[in-house]
Structure formats: structure tokens, C-alpha cells
Amino acid sequence: MLTQVADGVWVRQSEWVWTNSVVVRGDAGLVVVDPGIHGAEMDGLADDLDRLGVPVVAGFSTHPHWDHLLWHPRLGDVPRYATDACARLAGERRERAQAMATESATGVPLELVALLTPLPADGGPVPGEVVEHRAHALGHAALLLADRGVLLAGDMLSDLLIPLFDVTQDDQVGAYEEALDRLADAARRVDVVVPGHGAVARGPEVAARLAADRAYVDALRRGEEPADARLAAADWLAGPHGANREQARR
């Protein structure tokens, strides 16, 4: 079910890697950010939106990974926006995203995967300010809703997942350093951060999330092993962490 985290901002979490679908009320109606993951969960999200009684006017994808490119017919035939780079990559990699959705999720309407359009310069119906960077994925975007005191961080600032480098780009250490600087500037204007995966951060936890990601990246920059509790909490992160270390050495 939807949980309200601020005025006009709701979150619904999937069982799949603690993925957060976010709903934001804008001037024209609701904008659904990164809905997922299983078809039944998106159907439940649509039930929640029916109870709100406000129409969905748009979608938004924070980055071009398959689990952030999903949609459901009950959410409506509306534009689904992203940054220019995200929309382009989603289109180029659509078949791969569909294959990964088939492998990892159930009941996903594959014909609706990765159908994105670039966000217009004025933001269209999507409220807030886009904070774009290239950490984790090219065209990655956070949404700063300063008037609500909320930052939708995409796949950053998770309490459960370490920074996950994009293997298709060079210098992800530098990309993360730059992205964290941008997110830190945005976070000064909020007291709630919603990551793509994991628990919502409130108050002092926002700074703690930034510090944890910085400490991880800084350790790799120095060629050291990060002392990060997230690695101990999830064995499967050993693989991505090893890939991060290899890229940082190059």
C-alpha cells in the first residue's frame, strides 16, 4: 500500500530488492516515478491510485535500467518522461530490458517496457527540479521537490545497496564524486530522501546516507577496502563490489 512521506508524495515498496515506486501530486495530476516491479504489485499500485481519486498524467524513469522502465496499462496511456540520455539508452536497450524483466519479474507487460520520451525543457507535468548525473547510469536523474522537502534519489543513497558502478562508462569513481556533490547540494533543501531501493531517509539519516556513499567511494579512490556495513548485510553484493574495485583500479 502507499505510504505518505510528505505532502503530495507517496511511496510503495516492492518485495524485489526493496524497490520504491513513488507517486507525486503535481498541478495537473499524479506523476508515477519508477513503478514496479511485479505485475501484481503494479496492479496494487493502480488500486491505491484509484483510491486517491486523482488522475495519472505522466510517468518518470530515473535511469535506464530495466527495473526502472516498467509500466502497467492501469496506470494509463500517458507520456513517460526521462532525461534525454536515459530516454535514448532505454530505446536502444529495450529488448535487453524486456528480457531482464522476463527473467526477474512476473506479470510485467513487456510491450510497455522502456517506452520513454525526453522530458521537455519546462518539465511538463513533472514537478520539481531534475538533478542529472552519470553515476550508476548515463542520464541518471534525481528529482528535487524542494517545496515538499523531498529528494527522489534514484539508485543512490540507499541504506541497503552500495554504490553500483556502471560497467559501460569509464571513471565511475569520479562520476560518483560529482553526483554526490550535486545530491548533497540538493539535500540541503530537504528532510526526506527516497532511494530507488531501501528505506526512506528522514532528518539526520539523510546526511548519514551521503556520508556512507562518500566513504565507500573515497576508499576505492585510495585503493583501500571500504568498511561498509552494507557489504556484510548482503552476500550477493560481493560480486558488484568486486567489479567496482576492478574499475576503480583502472
Rank of each mutant, 00 (worst) to 15 (best):
V24Q: 14
R12N: 02
I37W: 00
P35Y: 02
D34Q: 09
V78R: 04
A28E: 15
E92S: 11
V22W: 05
V24D: 10
L45Q: 11
G44Q: 13
G39V: 03
S14I: 05
G26K: 12
R74S: 14
V31E: 00
P35V: 02
S21W: 01
V56P: 07
V23K: 09
P64Y: 02
A28D: 15
H63N: 11
D27N: 08
R80K: 08
V32M: 07
I37Y: 01
W16T: 10
V31G: 04
P73D: 15
G53W: 06
D77A: 14
G53V: 08
R25K: 14
W16P: 04
M42W: 06
G59N: 13
T83N: 08
E92M: 13
D27Y: 02
Q13H: 00
Y81D: 05
V78I: 11
V57C: 00
D67S: 12
G29W: 11
E15S: 15
L89V: 09
L30W: 00
W16E: 12
E15K: 14
R80A: 08
V31K: 03
E41L: 00
L89H: 12
H72G: 07
R25Y: 12
L52Y: 06
I37F: 08
H68V: 00
T83V: 01
T62D: 09
T83H: 10
G44S: 11
W16H: 15
V78D: 06
S14C: 12
V78H: 10
V56N: 00
